[in-house]
Design a protein around this nucleic acid. Structure first.
Length: 589
RNA sequence: GGCCCUGUAGCUCAAUUGGUUAGAGUAUCGGACUGUCGAUCCGAGGGUUGCGGGUUCAAGUCCCGUCGGGGUCGCCA
């Protein structure tokens, strides 16, 4: 070993010991005589001291050390005088007095230093990821990620789950997200696809009798990125046989309880709150509500249908709804400019054509459009909204889905802007009973909401013929602070029901065989009732470490355009490689 | 694909309404200093204002295009 201790462990009790430390020069302070170096490794920092009387050569070399040089020092642990103790460092009670110095490697002047307060822009951080990863914040995130993963593996192991790997090179199934394709050299003109999830394989494992499966699985989706979406990401993927929905939910809840206990020291209240999809849409306008604060959506369609306000009246007349939010006590906080521009634009991004607003004054409404509502209507609105003097009431009038999307966005914006919640809090809940299918207006057909192997409620089977939009699925999402943290369902194991679903989705038998016949075939050889769920590991690390993007919890993330600025991927390849694969490029001009 | 933000010294930022030689902190280099811990003090070097075009007597600043980064809508079963 090149070191006897790491840089985070020496204490007063080590005084007098001769030690060797290795690490990176975090900072240096040269007083001409005495030179101080903060030596850093993954475990912490220790101050090492060069004094002229320890030998001129070592001292001179010490004076030339610069940020990020990698060195080994040998010397004696000495106590600091009381006034020199640094209470900000756990190793602040001691120094290592350097007798010998070895410089393993000098560093070029780094583009930024790991100890910097002013973070450089993300482009630079990604290009020099090896330096960014030296920062304490990122190191903490990596450690937290390790802990979440380790706790999950241990938990599922205790519950009898088997960790089984599934292929990375798989078959393209053109449902859902765009596939990342990998050309086959051996099979000319044919392609593998990287898995969007191990979905089909884990169901086949259930058929094969491995009734509790778990995998920390890399998944790939070639879609546009977001703050919480990377082209490759990690799922904690599991599947269980001979279970009902509640069994899967409580299994996941058990994991969350472990995480909360071990990482936050909190006893998670179980079972977690459960909301139906319909209820979530009604109260929060979204299937992934941020439940850290209230400010729920309230409907006033019935109260304004007869008002003199043309906008509301017309919307109601054409089947629309008028819904809004009561923003408590901020009647004067937002200027008309903010309301008419910023907030209107925000709801506009979600299709709303306008934003109506009132201030509650003396139990009535005040605003430029208040005159269109008679006293009775005003009082009814205030009462419905539970309005008190000084409240701000905001309304969107439009088709139902537009009011939901617009008000959900507005609610999230206001919650953050008004700091309506404790950022430390984690509000976790299940969203249940998603619709099995949604109508695709462009294609004029029904699309699976979750996926096509998702089991409908038996009591809803009659709606297959009468009104497919009413069929509820045995599917469930776990939401936390407005993020989808897990998603799963009980699967279909009955071939008759599976056929009904295919019929509804207009997937003809031949097509079904071609796309995923191997799963359908497996299901014909004795399929147990089964279901499962996948947790987005990156998002949970992000939530537990309170970042607002997942790049900060991934060691080597990609940019919004899916490139890796560190390695330069993607990149052109040698023409010979393309020839081997029989690929000719046909690029846009 | 749409919309919004952004790009000035290695880094973080400034630069009045379009107007003189584009500044500051930090980093780097040189010097001073024997107890600092964001060390301090003195000095020096460091710029194709992302790139290309245009308007103008004059462009970091205005216009068009383009590239990179970020946010978001579409998209993501």
């Amino acid at each position: 070993m090149l070191r006897s201790h790491n840089c985070g462990e020496l204490r007063k009790s080590n005084v007098g010991e001769t030690v060797q430390l290795c690490g990176w020069v975090d900072s240096y302070r040269d007083h001409g005589g005495v030179v101080f170096i903060d030596l850093r490794d993954r475990y912490g920092k220790t101050q090492v001291v060069f004094r002229p009387e320890e030998g001129s050569e070592v001292h001179i070399e010490g004076r030339h050390l610069r940020s990020e040089d990698v060195i080994q020092v040998a010397g004696e642990v000495v106590p600091r005088t009381e006034k020199d103790v640094n209470p900000k460092m756990v190793t602040g009670e001691i120094d290592v007095r350097v007798r010998e110095l070895k410089v393993f490697s000098k560093s070029k002047t780094p583009p930024f230093e790991p100890r910097t307060q002013d973070l450089p822009n993300e482009e630079l951080r990604l290009k020099y990821r090896f330096i960014d990863l030296r920062r304490e914040e990122l190191r903490k995130a990596m450690i937290l990620r390790h802990k979440l993963t380790k706790l999950a593996r241990d938990y599922f192991d205790e519950q009898g789950f088997l960790d089984i790997e599934t292929p990375i090179l798989g078959k393209s199934t053109p449902e859902g997200a765009r596939d990342y394709l990998v050309p086959s050299r051996v099979h000319e003109g044919e392609f593998y696809a990287l898995p969007q999830s191990p979905q089909i394989f884990k169901q086949i494992l259930m058929v094969a009798g491995y009734d509790r499966y778990i995998q920390i699985a890399k998944c790939f989706r070639d879609e546009d990125l977001r703050a919480d979406r990377q082209p490759e990401f990690t799922q904690i993927d599991l599947e269980m046989s001979f279970v009902e929905q509640d069994d899967v939910l409580s299994m996941v809840e058990g994991l969350l309880a472990v995480w909360m206990k071990e990482l936050r020291g909190v006893d998670l209240q179980l079972p977690l709150p459960r909301l139906s999809h319909a209820e979530a849409m009604e109260r929060f306008g979204t299937d992934k509500p941020d439940l850290r604060f209230g400010m729920e959506i309230v409907e006033i369609t019935d109260l304004v249908a007869d008002s003199d306000f043309g906008v509301f009246k017309n919307v109601v007349g054409s089947g629309g709804r008028v819904r809004g939010l009561n923003v408590k006590g901020v009647g004067d906080r937002y200027s008309r400019r903010v309301l008419d521009n910023d907030m209107k634009n925000l709801v506009g991004e979600h299709g709303a054509k306008g934003l109506a607003y009132f201030k509650v004054v003396g139990g009535k409404l005040e605003s430029s459009i208040a005159k269109f509502f008679n006293e009775e209507q005003q009082k009814a609105i205030v009462e419905r909204m539970q309005g008190e003097d000084g409240d701000l009431l905001l309304y969107v009038a439009d088709q139902p889905d537009v009011t939901s999307a617009a008000l959900a966005a507005l609610r999230n914006h206001l919650g953050k802007d008004l700091e309506l919640y404790d950022p430390q809090e984690m509000a976790i809940a299940w969203i249940l009973e998603f619709p099995l299918v949604t109508w695709n207006e462009d294609e004029q057909r029904w699309d699976a909401e979750h996926h096509m192997f998702c089991n409908p409620f038996e009591e809803d089977l009659e709606y297959f013929v009468t009104d497919p939009s009413k069929i509820r699925a045995r599917s469930y999402d776990l939401v936390c602070n407005g993020y989808e943290g897990a998603s799963g369902s009980i699967r279909i194991h009955d071939t008759k029901i599976q056929q009904q679903v295919f019929d509804l989705l207009k997937i003809d038998p031949e097509e079904a065989e071609e796309r995923f016949g191997f799963l359908l075939e497996a299901l014909r050889y004795g399929a147990p009732p089964h279901g499962g769920v996948a947790l987005g590991l990156d998002r949970w690390v992000m939530l537990f470490s309170m970042y607002d993007n997942i790049r900060d919890v991934i060691a080597f993330p990609k940019t919004q355009k899916a490139s890796d600025l560190l390695s330069g991927a993607p990149s052109e390849v040698d023409p010979k490689q393309l020839r081997d694969l029989h690929i000719k490029l046909d690029l846009p001009k």
